[in-house]
Simulated scan of single mutants.
Amino acid sequence: MRRKTREQVERLVQEMATELAELRSPGIREAVHREAQRIGEAAAHEAIETYRSRMDNRLHSIRDTAVKQATEAVLDRTRQTLEDANRTYLEQAKEQAREIFHDSVPPVISVQIDRAPPVRVTENSHEVLPDVILVLKARCHALLVGPAGTGKSTIAQQVARTLDLEFHALSLGPTTPMSKIFGYYDAHGTYHDTPFRRAFEEGGLMLLDELDSGHPGLLSELNQALSLGVCAFADDMVTAHPDFRVIATANTYGTGPDRQYTGRQALDAATLDRFVILDVPVDEALEERLALAQAPTREAEALEVLHLVRKLRATAREKRLPVMFSPRASIDSAKLIQAGACVEEAVEWRVLRGISDAHRAALGADAS
Rank of each mutant, 00 (worst) to 15 (best):
I247Y: 06
G214W: 10
V246F: 11
H307M: 05
L226S: 07
L278T: 01
G204M: 07
Y261T: 00
F275N: 01
F244W: 02
L205A: 09
L308E: 10
D243Q: 08
L205F: 13
R259C: 06
H215A: 14
L308Q: 13
P216V: 03
E299R: 15
R310N: 12
E221K: 14
V276K: 05
R298Y: 08
I277Y: 11
T297N: 14
T249Y: 12
R245F: 05
A232P: 13
Y253K: 15
A300K: 15
L205Y: 08
Y253P: 14
E299I: 15
H307S: 12
Q294F: 14
Y261P: 02
A291N: 08
G256L: 01
L278W: 04
M206F: 07
H241I: 01
Y253L: 15
E210I: 00
L286Y: 10
G214T: 01
D268C: 08
F233M: 05
R298I: 05
A240R: 11
P216D: 00
V280I: 04
A248S: 01
Q260N: 08
F244E: 00
L205N: 10
F233V: 01
L303N: 05
R298T: 09
E284K: 14
A266G: 14
S227G: 11
L278C: 01
R274A: 01
A248E: 00
P216K: 09
A266W: 11
V246Y: 07
H215W: 03
A240I: 00
T239H: 15
Q224D: 06
A270W: 06
L205S: 07
A285E: 14
L207V: 00
T271V: 15
N251I: 01
M237G: 08
L308T: 10
S227V: 13
P281E: 00
L207F: 12
A266K: 15
A293P: 09
M206A: 04
L219Q: 06
R310G: 11
G217Q: 06
N251L: 03
V282I: 12
L207T: 03
Q260H: 10
A293L: 12
R310C: 07
N251V: 05
D273Q: 04
V246L: 06
P242Q: 01
A232F: 10
T255L: 13
F233I: 00
L222Y: 02
D236K: 14
F233E: 01
L267C: 10
G254E: 02
F244G: 03
A285V: 13
P216N: 03
R245K: 11
P242R: 04
G214P: 08
N223C: 11
G229V: 00
L211C: 04
T255M: 14
E210M: 07
L207G: 09
L205D: 06
R259Q: 10
R289W: 02
A232E: 13
P257K: 12
T255H: 15
P242N: 08
D235L: 02
S213E: 13
L208K: 11
E288P: 12
L278Q: 00
L272M: 05
L308R: 14
E210L: 04
G214D: 02
V282W: 05
A250P: 05
L211W: 03
